[in-house]
């Protein structure tokens, strides 16, 4: 399926970023059309993480720009970008440890409704139904009253996914969504993500080490090497790409076997 005819939702223009003398991203351009699921891959140190953090606003580029629906995100802090409808998840799932599962979502909803300044209402009573609905969506419904800290890691990842959905984002940026999870769980979480994204026409950009996940779920794969785009196309195209095989996929197989447990 090709969605390239639709106008881009997210666009990177000639992004450039260096640390000291080391160039991490060297003039990278990328445009993601509405509803597409794009995987950013590349070997360690290729500039993948930097690119990702430039997209989320956690880093600001030395030059170049990131556009959301044609609007520049330059200089905006991540929280502003979120308010423009960009949700995100982290490599190590980021949730609120002192709150229950349900409260985590309520917290997100409170912020989405811009009510985090309210001093009087009981936060625990706000947006309960909405929050329950979101939890049901990711399959955590029964776990709502549990302290977040007691969840299994796979469930934390689900919680984070639900949390990323509180403001009905039209773009979802996911950093290593399956990192640290058991094999079976990876598949179900990714399945869930893709289903939700398709249902809600959410544009997804994710980085990933697990090539099975990448090639099974992405509409499109962008390979980054030395701060530039090495290849960009459908999973099939990328898999056939000689250059990619040379620098990356050749080693990918061994990578895959080691990665899952080494990271946790």
């Amino acid at each position: 399926m090709s969605c390239s005819l639709l106008p881009p939702v997210l666009e990177a223009r000639a992004l450039r970023k260096s640390y000291g003398g080391v160039v991490a991203v060297a003039g990278l351009s990328l445009s993601v059309p509405r509803g597409q699921i794009l995987a950013l891959i590349g070997p360690n140190g290729a500039g993948k993480s930097t690119t990702f953090n430039l997209l989320t606003g956690h880093l600001s580029p030395d030059s170049g720009d990131v556009l959301l629906n044609g609007q520049s995100l330059a200089g905006l802090p991540p929280r502003r970008i979120w308010r423009m409808g960009v949700g995100r998840t982290f490599q190590v799932a980021a949730t609120f440890g002192s709150m229950t599962v349900l409260e985590n979502i309520q917290m997100g909803l409170i912020s989405a409704h811009n009510r985090y300044r309210a001093l009087w209402p009981w936060a625990g009573a706000l947006y309960r139904d909405q929050a329950m609905a979101l939890l049901d969506l990711v399959g955590l419904g029964p776990l709502g009253p549990l302290p977040c800290a007691t969840l299994a890691y796979g469930d934390v990842k689900r919680l984070e996914l639900a949390l990323a959905l509180v403001n009905d984002p039209h773009v979802l940026l996911m950093d290593e969504p399956t990192a640290g999870m058991a094999l079976a769980e990876r598949e179900s979480v990714m399945e869930l993500t893709v289903t939700l994204a398709r249902q809600r026409t959410i544009t997804v950009v994710f980085t990933e080490h697990d090539m099975d996940v990448v090639f099974r779920h992405a509409d499109r794969v962008a390979v980054i090497n030395r701060g530039t785009l090495l290849a960009d196309g459908t999973p099939d195209e990328v898999q056939q790409n000689e250059q990619v095989r040379d620098v990356y996929l050749g080693r990918g197989a061994t990578y895959r076997k080691q990665a899952p447990d080494a990271e946790r």
């Binding site: 980021a94 609120f96 309520q106 912020s111 300044r117 309210a118 001093l119 209402p121």
Partner: peptide, 13 residues
């Protein structure tokens, strides 16, 4: 309150 939760959220993560 929502404010308290938000402050605590910033502390937690």
């Amino acid at each position: 309150s929502p404010f308290g939760y938000a402050v605590r959220g910033c502390r937690d993560n």
